[in-house]
Write a protein that binds this DNA or RNA. Structure first.
Ligand code: MN
Ligand code: MN
Ligand code: ZN
Ligand code: ZN
Lengths: 143, 143
DNA sequence: TTGAAATTGATAACCCGTCTCAAAAAGAAT
DNA sequence: ATTCTTTTTGAGACGGGTTATCAATTTCAA
């Protein structure tokens, strides 16, 4: 039994509901994806090239987008590239990003979320999503 | 005396400090830029085509990026395009964005900013910048 | 006025991601 | 297992947005 049985189940359920098929590539990509917190399609392409040199980049993009629809991943447009964020085993969260070394720390803060709601309703908005990214230097890079 | 004398002064000071030259194009683009809250390079290109049909798109991009370096503008990667945010006459602010009509509302919230600092220091980070965007429906679009 | 240095505009190149399409694979029905 | 329809795949073309290239022009200090 695979280490990612639960997520594999979520994927299969989504596939079933949408007349989609379970393929060797989708299994391979899900397995690699779940080992990361965040990854780009390009990174995954190179990483998987060892296991299957014929896996196409388009397939990686298509599959990561599929994971987003299945609720396993979340796309974050980050600078010039798209990061796919592994959200399968955790809820919503935001990010601290080190401009020195690229390190990414995930965090949640209910107080901030609540204040966001206040700001929105004060302006007549109802929030659907949000993005909060804090850029700075981690302790290692500050010295 | 121009309506944007103060900002023109800021630009000239920046130019002086970096061996850059004051050109007709830079003056023209700054003047147009300061009339907006946010604008894309493409939008400005079409807008200025009336005043100077030979103004190149590359020059607009170069100049808006120059404004960012001079502290007059701030680039926000927004969906597929880059929005240049006029920050010359107001301090830092964040944005509420209506997913229905595209309306953008600017806001400031010290409490959120303070909590961000707390989150950062708790994780050993010092914040340099941040981005907070709240996406949702404005009151008009909700109905 | 002169001349070195910066800027401009046209357009090629670039990057990232999506689209196209013929061949291959999946899987339901026999 | 075989057939048959539907989906998926991989290669590469394509597209939008932005930056790089480079010869001609402009700026501005000397
Ligand atoms: Mn994350
Ligand atoms: Mn703004
Ligand atoms: Zn760091
Ligand atoms: Zn709206």
């Amino acid at each position: 039994m695979s280490k990612h049985a639960k997520e594999m189940e979520i994927l299969k359920e989504h596939l079933g509901k949408h007349q989609l098929k379970f393929t060797r590539q989708r299994e391979l990509i899900l397995d690699a994806f779940l080992k990361q917190e965040h990854i780009t399609a390009e990174e995954m392409y190179h990483q998987l090239a060892r296991k299957d040199p014929h896996l196409g980049l388009a397939t990686i993009y298509r599959t990561l987008n599929l994971f987003c629809e299945a609720g396993l991943a979340q796309a974050r447009h980050f600078g010039t590239q798209t990061q796919y964020d592994n959200v399968s085993h955790k809820g919503h969260h935001d990010h601290l990003i080190c401009t020195g070394c690229g390190k990414i720390v995930e965090f949640e803060n209910c107080d901030i979320e609540r204040l966001q709601e206040e700001v929105a309703s004060r302006n007549g908005f109802t929030i659907q999503t949000h993005r909060l990214e804090l850029y700075g230097l981690c302790s290692r890079c500050r010295h």
